[in-house]
């Protein structure tokens, strides 16, 4: 089996994200809205634009089939969300989809988008920027995507272990690989120059400590809610333990919880349109 450094080296064979994504991220960090820059960016990534329009045309926004340009999409869903969705599409497109492998590509990205939507919903409750939260959720399991897309043999061995033991993925990874997808994902996020807060959310979304940042808490609880809602499919998944301090931070009361789940489910279904076939 490969070491984590060797695994990361494999990930570096993925198509470069630097061009589109780095710029999209820079744009995202600017306070002022700049649609023309985004348009220039998207002219170089037609796949991302097509995916964005799928979302704008999803039932969630109620204008099925009538959004055909970037400016219309921005008017409808707002610039911050537009930028985030473009980034999400650009990330997904960096990972090749192979037929016949052990990795459930669609199921994986559905789960990631579900956690992203849940993170965006939860973020304002603890003072986190919703779009940063969306990206944190989108990327939280990026280490699994690296295993699934770049390290077929290792990924298959982890899956076998998950099935044999009915254990958590991270537990199987530690036994089989000696490192977890959290660590691998955080290392990749560092290499891809994602903000430190996002690297931390990837690294710590399973193992929280008392100093966990609000973003870590958001992604941790969002992951629990997305699995509860059965959005996407990670092999052998189960609703994981919830960190009580993080849960308490959101101040849910039981009567409102069904409504929270419904709201997240609706937003997630809209975000899933990013994954639809782009013709």
């Amino acid at each position: 089996m490969l070491t984590m450094a060797q695994s990361l080296e494999r990930a570096s064979r993925l198509p470069s994200i630097s061009a589109v994504l780095t710029q999209a991220l820079e744009e995202m960090n600017k306070p002022e809205a700049d649609i023309s820059r985004l348009a220039t960016l998207l002219a170089r990534d037609q796949g991302a634009l097509a995916r964005l329009l799928r979302v704008a045309n999803s039932a969630f926004y109620g204008l099925s089939g009538h959004v055909s340009s970037l400016s219309q999409a921005v008017t409808l869903i707002g610039l911050p969300t537009t930028r985030t969705l473009v980034t999400a599409a650009a990330i997904i497109d960096r990972f090749p989809q192979r037929a016949g492998g052990a990795f459930n590509y669609q199921g994986f990205w559905q789960h990631s988008l579900g956690v992203a939507a849940a993170s965006r919903y939860l973020a304002p409750r603890v003072g986190v920027n919703p779009e940063t939260a969306f990206l944190g959720g989108m990327l939280h399991d990026i280490g699994i995507a690296v295993l699934g897309c770049c390290l077929e043999e290792e990924y298959r061995a982890v899956l076998d272990r998950v099935h044999a033991e009915d254990c958590a993925t991270t537990e199987a990874e530690l036994t089989v690989l000696g490192f977890t997808h959290d660590e691998l994902g955080a290392a990749l996020a560092e290499q891809w120059k994602f903000p430190l807060a996002i690297q931390e959310a990837i690294r710590s979304h399973h193992a929280l400590n008392i100093q966990a940042t609000p973003l870590v808490r958001v992604v941790h609880v969002a992951n629990v809610l997305a699995v509860t809602l059965d959005i996407g499919d990670i092999e052998g998944s189960f609703v994981p333990p919830v960190d009580p301090a993080s849960w308490a931070a959101f101040g849910f009361n039981e009567p409102e919880l069904a409504g929270v789940l419904e709201a997240i489910d609706i937003q997630a279904q809209s975000a899933l349109a990013v994954l639809h076939e782009v013709n």
Binding site: D230, F238, V239, V242
Partner: peptide, 20 residues
Amino acid sequence: EYLFRKAEADPIRATLRRAL
């Protein structure tokens, strides 16, 4: 039953399951 198979007596996950 499948998704909550490891939730056992955890009160937070019991609340979540009822809400779901």
